[in-house]
């Protein structure tokens, strides 16, 4: 109990740019995870509306020992997500956002196939700009090195279809079925045309009662999921082209995800946690007036031994469009 309380407090105080950090919701039909699009309202703007589409392709997994294993022969496992997001800056340094995914599962094995769809888990968040980046072209004095620091919290709301709903197959799952509170920290620095960022997040799930598994009622019990830690670092370069100020920012990133063991009636199930490392590249176009933005990204889990444990290896291709309300 005390440990759980500490986890909640840690999640609450760690802070940060809730919507700015990849937020794997593990929504796939088996056990995979995707990334919600980042959603950050620029300082000069009132709000942001964002629409993105993710295609996640499954290709094997890391087992308990970190060895990479293939999917069954002739299998083709995919998940598609349409993410609708809205961010609103309600005060100079405060913003709130909501992200709502709709999920399609498309799984084909040589012996069975399944297509299903449904709402995924929703994320609502709030963040505070602790420090602003006084971006400069050159460093003249120490204060030019000050980065932007944002702290925040987000709440994952189990609006998706979980194993505890009236669904008979694991192929139908679009969400975890648990609330999770995340505290996050985002550090960003631009030295035009370069930029870099570091984001950290720590989340704790809230235990829940379970009385049904994949459509079958079972003897009720309490289930918990392990705390989740994510970290990512990125570096980018912005190209200005033309005379109007249109820009394209290219970014390379690294991400680490770890989730602890699940528990049943308060007793931990050993070896049920997982971790994953992935690399990503992205390109984002921003119009001269910064109202419109387009982006394309690719996140790749390295299909080699030792880059993860107990988790699927996937490629996620994302395309998105964003409109900034001034």
């Amino acid at each position: 109990m005390r440990t759980h309380l500490i986890s909640i407090v840690l999640a609450a105080v760690l802070g940060a740019a809730a919507a700015c950090i990849p937020n794997s919701s593990q929504a796939a039909s088996c056990c995979g995870g995707g990334s919600a699009a980042s959603l950050s309202v620029p300082k000069y703007a009132v709000a942001v509306a964002d629409l993105s589409f993710d295609t996640e392709l499954y290709d094997g997994y890391w087992d308990q020992k970190g060895s990479h294993r293939p999917d069954p022969p002739e299998s083709d496992l995919k998940q598609f997500r349409l993410n609708v997001g809205l961010g609103y800056r309600f005060a100079k340094d405060w913003q709130a956002s909501i992200s709502l995914p709709y999920v399609w599962n498309d799984n084909t094995y040589s012996g069975t196939s399944s297509r299903s769809d449904g709402l995924g888990d929703t994320t609502v968040s709030i963040s505070y700009d602790l420090l602003d980046d006084k971006s400069s072209w050159k460093i003249y004095e120490a204060k030019d090195l000050i980065p932007a620091i944002t702290v925040g919290m987000s709440l994952l709301i189990p609006t998706g279809i979980s194993p505890y709903d009236d669904k008979n197959s694991s192929f139908d799952i679009t969400g975890r079925g648990f609330y999770r509170l995340d505290g996050m920290l985002l550090v960003e620095k631009s030295l035009r045309p370069w930029n870099m960022s570091l984001s950290l997040a720590y989340g704790t799930y809230f235990d829940r009662s379970v009385n049904r598994e994949y459509g079958k009622y079972v003897e009720p019990y309490t289930k918990g999921l392990g705390d989740r830690f994510t970290a990512s670092a990125s570096a980018g370069y912005t190209f200005i082209y033309g005379t109007g100020g249109d820009s394209i920012t290219t970014t390379a990133s690294y991400a680490y995800l770890n989730e602890g063991n699940a528990s049943y009636n308060g007793i931990q199930a050993s070896d049920s946690g997982f971790d994953k490392q992935s690399l990503g590249i992205a390109a984002a176009y921003s119009s001269t007036d910064h109202n419109w933005g387009l982006r394309l990204g690719w996140n790749h889990a390295i299909q080699q031994n030792g880059w993860g444990h107990n988790f699927p290896t996937t490629d996620v291709v994302s395309v998105g469009v964003r409109y900034v309300f001034l």
């Binding site: 449904g118 709402l119 709301i157 279809i161 979980s162 709903d165 648990f178 829940r208 009385n211 003897e219």
Partner: peptide, 12 residues
């Protein structure tokens, strides 16, 4: 479409 996840039941 949120099923029982928003308000989980422990009823047998």
């Amino acid at each position: 479409g949120c099923g029982d996840n928003l308000f989980p039941s422990g009823e047998d």
